[in-house]
Write a protein that binds this DNA or RNA. Sequence first.
DNA 1: TTGTCACATGTTATTCTATTGCAAACAATG
DNA 2: CATTGTTTGCAATAGAATAACATGTGACAA
Lengths: 180, 180
Amino acid sequence: MTDQIVTPFRSESHNHKRCVTDAMALAEERCARRGARLTRIRRRVLELIWSRHEPVKAYDLLDQLREEHRGAAPPTIYRALDFLLAEGLIHRIESLNAYIGCGDPSHPHLGQFLICERCNAVAEMDDDDIRDLLAHKAALQGFHVNWQTIEINGVCPSCRAIPNGTVSGNETDTPADRCR
Amino acid sequence: MTDQIVTPFRSESHNHKRCVTDAMALAEERCARRGARLTRIRRRVLELIWSRHEPVKAYDLLDQLREEHRGAAPPTIYRALDFLLAEGLIHRIESLNAYIGCGDPSHPHLGQFLICERCNAVAEMDDDDIRDLLAHKAALQGFHVNWQTIEINGVCPSCRAIPNGTVSGNETDTPADRCR
DNA sequence: TTGTCACATGTTATTCTATTGCAAACAATG
DNA sequence: CATTGTTTGCAATAGAATAACATGTGACAA
Ligand SMILES: [Zn+2]
Ligand SMILES: [Zn+2]
Ligand SMILES: [Zn+2]
Ligand SMILES: [Zn+2]
């Protein structure tokens, strides 16, 4: 079975705190092994990203960071994001100018993202079939692939269960909200 | 054969003027049939986009438009781009914040883009196999697809022919330059 | 300990990308 | 002509990201 789901859509009842601490532990471990310095700021930014199950914007992170860290400025955030991207701890969603935690930082990869346009939840796949098919089709054009950006918008399983025009209980719910 | 190349990588010797006028003729025809108003500004913006065989930035278009149209401002460009996107006459390349002419506006589609990181040339595919595989993989997660963003970065055939570290004749060449 | 070096952060300003809101101009229709 | 909807002009602002340079910090060797 070549297809692999790195970050699935989560059930409404999953333990969200656990989910964050697990991700942080993986990050600590990986950085330690690689001699990468997961400093206080970088760690905190990663934690802020993980604390939502949806793509987070750089300036949202900045606002949150400012509350506890006077003097935080755009470069503070973008440097942390650059580090986290380089270490494979987060991914950037190009179509949203936003960032999301990687569910499997153990090996570097480009993901394929399923983005719900109703609730903003995101699932990450790392599917060999997709990667290979794209590489094959590109090769037919004589093109050598270095990087793939694959972002799929649509409706996630939970939202499909809700009749289309229905006004849900709370339209401003975020994926993380539904986990609490 | 399900795979389809909408805009191939062009040979260095193709007739570039012809290529632009053909695209404009298709656009005129399509807008006429649909009752869409391809106004002077919109037409000119489309022409500016087609006159390069690479993704063009909004503010580059603005600079060019200003030279012949005093009073052009950001909204002037973005409104034109919105119209052209809505009519399927151009595509937006998310990973570059840039826009490129669509090689087949006759039917609306999401494309798959091959972007050369050396010369900035872009080829557009509209490949059913890719579309279907993604839809299938998404369905396995219970996800319903509405939109796909697929952008593949790498090295185009012409650039692969040039040894890697070689300094080419003119590094600032654009795809359109090479066509003249 | 002290010096040194690489790396990380602070600070200010700027660039690039895109949207909002409202007024004026224009085109199609009857 | 009058009406209506669309397009454009214009000024301001929001949002995303980087540049440039100064300052701080931690590891390590002299
Ligand atoms: Zn990942
Ligand atoms: Zn959803
Ligand atoms: Zn197209
Ligand atoms: Zn190339």
